[in-house]
Design a protein around this nucleic acid. Structure first.
Lengths: 137, 137
DNA sequence: GCAAAATAATACTTTTATGTAGCATATTAT
DNA sequence: ATAATATGCTACATAAAAGTATTATTTTGC
C-alpha cells in the first residue's frame, strides 16, 4: 500500500507542477518548494524526462516542463515508470502460480484490495487534483 | 500495497497453520512445508509467540500451536505485529499534516485505496480462508 | 542423569533502497 | 567567445530490510 520513497517523490513533483502545468520549473525551485534532497530529486527528474512525462530545457534559465498533458498521466503511469507496477500486482503471499483459477488461501480477500488499488491508480490523473493545500516542509 | 517480506511470511505461516488449527506444528515441519529460510522463519515464529498469536512448546517433541483462535486473528493484527500498520495509514505523499480536514492534493484519490485496504485487512480473519490450494514451493 | 530434539537470543553478513558527491555536458545572455 | 547557470552521468556512501551462523536454553524420553 505504501509506495516507495521514489514513487512518493515522483508524485509529489508532478502533482506540484500540475498546479500550473504550462510553466517551466527549475530543479532549484523544486528543491526549495518540495524539500527533497538535491541530487535525489535531480535523478528522479532525469528519470521522468526519459520516460516522457516532462522534458528538460538545458542551459541558462533552463528547467523542466510537462512533455505530456497532466490529463494523460495516471498515477499508475508514474508508479510504473519509477519503480515498476508489478510489485503491486502479485500475490500477497508471494506465490507465483497464484491466480483466479488457482488461488492461494488469501486470494479472495486480497484481490478486493488489489483491484481497488489498480482501478484507482489507473483512473486517477494528474489533471484532476485538489490544489487547495500545497504543503511545503 | 505490497507487504514486507516479513508480513508475507507471517501470513503464510499462520494461514498454513489455520488449516488444522488445533494441531501442533514444529518449526522443522513449517520450514519443509513453506520453504522459508530456517533462521528467518524461526525469528518470525518467536515474534508471533511474543505477540500472543501462537505459543511455543519447548523441549523434545515441541513446536507451535495457536494461542488465540484463528477466528480472533485479523490480517491487520498480523501485519501490525510484525511490521506495524502505521506505514499503511499515512499520507501517500508522506505529509504528516495531511488529513480529511487538511488534505494533500492526492488525498481524495488515495483515501479510497487506503480505506479499502484497512477495512479488508481489519475484517479478514484467519478462520475464513479457502484451503483448496496450499502451495508449497 | 543425560542425550536428543526442540525453541531462544545475539550478533553478524548480505542485499537493496535511499541518499550524496563530483565532474561532465549543454545552452544562452551578455 | 565565454561565463553563468542549467541538466546528465557515474560512482560512492549510508541506512534499513532481509537473511544466516553460532551458541544458549528448555524439556522430555530413555
Amino acid at each position: 500500500m505504501i509506495l516507495s520513497n521514489t514513487s512518493e517523490y515522483a508524485l509529489r513533483i508532478l502533482s506540484f507542477m500540475a498546479k500550473d502545468p504550462s510553466r517551466m520549473y527549475s530543479a532549484k525551485y523544486l528543491i526549495e518548494s518540495l524539500h527533497i534532497s538535491d541530487k535525489y530529486l535531480r535523478r528522479i527528474l532525469t528519470d521522468l524526462s526519459k520516460k516522457g512525462f516532462i522534458k528538460s530545457i538545458q542551459g541558462r534559465d533552463g528547467g523542466y516542463v510537462f512533455d505530456k498533458s497532466p490529463a494523460q498521466i495516471s498515477f499508475a503511469d508514474v508508479i510504473d515508470a519509477v519503480e515498476g507496477i508489478e510489485k503491486y500486482t502479485g500475490c500477497v503471499l508471494g506465490f507465483k502460480q497464484c491466480s483466479d483459477e488457482n488461488p492461494c488461501v488469501l486470494h479472495a480477500t486480497w484481490i478486493q484490495v488489489r483491484e481497488k488499488f489498480l482501478s484507482t491508480v489507473n483512473q486517477a490523473r494528474l489533471s484532476d487534483l485538489n490544489f487547495e493545500n500545497i504543503y511545503k516542509y
